[in-house]
Design a protein around this nucleic acid. Sequence first.
DNA 1: TAACGGAGCGCC
DNA 2: AAAGGGCGCTCCGTTA
Length: 563
Amino acid sequence: MVAADAEGGGVIRPLGEQGRRLRALPGLPSDDGHDAGSAIRVPDLAAAVRSLEAAERPRWVWADARRVYPALLAAGVRVSRCHDVALTENLLLGADGRHGEPRRVEAAYARLHGLPVPGDPHEPSGAHPAGGTQASLFEPAAPRPDAAAEAGMVAEVFGDQLRRIARTPDPGRFRLLVAAESAGALIAAEMGHDGMPWREDVHDALLTELLGPRPAHGMRPAKLQALADEVAAAFGHPVNPDSPQQIVRAFKSVGIEVPSARSHVLKSVDHPAVAPLLAYKELARLYSFHGWTWAAQWVSGNRFRPEYVVGGVVSGRWATSGGGALQIPKVMRRVVVADEGWTLVVADAAQLEPRVLAALSGDRGLARAAGEIDLYAALAQAFGGARESAKIAMLSAMYGGTSGDAPKLLAVMRQRFPKAYAFVEDAARAGEEGRLVRSWLGRTCPPPSERWRRLVTGPEGARAARDRGRFTRNFVVQATAAEWALTLLAVLRGLLRELAGGPARLVFFQHDEVMVHCPLDLAGEVREAVGRAAEEATRLLFGDTAVRFPMEAVAVTCYADAK
DNA sequence: TAACGGAGCGCC
DNA sequence: AAAGGGCGCTCCGTTA
């Protein structure tokens, strides 16, 4: 079912068999004279979606959930499932090594018909650096087409996308990826709408405790100013502690050479300015990043409402385009408190990435270890008995680490877990040679930039190649981990909707961690749902595997108590 | 005045 | 404890 919105109304266009039934539905005009093709104009899109959702739970096909869904949520309408054309276009373009090309439905339609593509930067070189999807996320806004025209485009591009999906190396997996990504679009919009519980009074008290009272505009909070004064006194002259350059120069003026002003560098410097400087850095970040100004913009009604960007990271992890939801300092967790009579169910996947590697590579030995709750402990024996050695070996394999004991431990890994070792080595080799790698479900890494291609043949070539090898080595694992987490989230959302009329709400998702806000008496069932969702995600991705993906959920009143 | 890159640091 | 990769955001300081 295609839905497109417009000022004061919208268009619904049935697809396939559902369309014939649609016309008999009450509450929708069967023919109001504005029927373009099979498109039906409706005066109130939200009401029309609500009635269709109740009647037959279609898969809604729309240009971009971010365009359509927030208005539906505002009208109190939620849907079960959708196909997000823009996100799918992004995945399909990526699969062809065409990261960064415009992904909006207008662009997809234009490409399909050989027309000029709106929003295409058409710069042949250097336009799409590896790691940059920004161009596709913030395309110049083309004029919105009429809703009926948009519905037509969406229907046509959708059909084309289904054909392109069928031509991918593994259509079954790619379909799952598209479904999960689209579910993510719904969840992101819903989480932005519902918001995460955020006690404004607790936040203010915390800031006041750490920084002093909220300062007048343009002033530093009292405790920050006091620390800045201490720094100045230690150097004998004013130094802006927010300026790394000034800090380095100030140390030079007292005969201390530091390569940078980073905290870990300053920690080993013996000078009276160091202590207040380190304290200042920590508090200043809190003040500017998650202080009163931030709260005024992102917190309202005791809810933190960030803007999530599904697929905003090339690996498929989410990003945010505001609010910094994925970088909330741990000290702020005490501000996240369940409503009266409600609770927060918090769960994170333990040792997700090594488990993903075990499943991805089909390494039986590693999979056996990944059948245990503590994977690293299970591996310890293979690495000389130390759990820590096993951990270093796995992390080095997945991230391309070479320092310390890594080479020795990787040699052990190569011998004991040859398939897992070969899997990440192959990914690294592909990256070094400029090739593409794909996740388990078919998300594709960006191709190397023109700049990289020039660099790799030059004197710095070996380094450039190694860097990209580390990126692709990590990509296959991180992107598959993101797929598992997203699938879990989609399944969990479905389970929560079935629970007691659906009051439980997903309110936070951070790579491998989820938070549900629910009435106290549902805590047990929600915790159970998290476990079931983890099992179902594992089955959907990897079928019958020995690898376990433990997801322990705890119910807490305050986020800070979750760990 | 606006735009931009670098530095720095929070999260996973 | 840390190595590795990925981000967002804010500040500074320079350039257009």
